[in-house]
C-alpha cells in the first residue's frame, strides 16, 4: 500500500505509523466527566469508506491528517497536522 506525505510524496506504508482518529482532548481534567473521558479513550467511529485519520510519517516525523477510503485503502487527501 502506498501512503502520501505532503513533504515526501508517495511512500511505502511501512514508513508510516497510525496514531488514531482526530479527536479533541477533553480538558481540564477536573471538569471532564468519567463518561466523556472514557469516550475519548476508547470510542472510535471506525467507518467503512471515507475516514479521517492521524498518521505519523516516521522518516520525516511529520504528523499528518489523512483522508482515506478504508474499504479500498486509497488515500483521498493528506495535509500536515498544522498550518504552514
Amino acid at each position: 500500500m502506498l501512503l502520501f506525505c505532503p513533504f515526501c510524496g508517495p511512500r511505502d506504508e511501512t514508513e508510516f505509523h497510525y496514531l488514531g482518529e482526530p479527536k479533541a482532548r477533553p480538558e481540564p481534567a477536573a471538569e471532564v466527566t468519567d463518561a466523556a473521558w472514557a469516550e475519548y479513550l476508547y470510542v472510535n467511529a471506525n467507518p467503512r469508506g471515507e475516514a479521517r485519520e492521524i498518521w505519523l510519517h516516521r522518516t520525516c516525523m511529520d504528523v499528518l491528517v489523512m483522508t482515506r477510503d478504508t474499504a479500498t485503502n486509497a488515500t483521498l487527501s493528506v495535509e500536515s497536522s498544522r498550518p504552514a
Binding site: 496514531l19 504528523v63 497536522s81
Partner: peptide, 14 residues
C-alpha cells in the same frame, strides 16, 4: 521519542 514528537506537533508551538 515518537510520543514526544507527536505531542510536540499536536499541542505545542513546534
Amino acid at each position: 521519542a515518537m510520543r514526544l514528537e507527536v505531542w510536540r506537533q499536536d499541542r505545542f508551538d513546534p
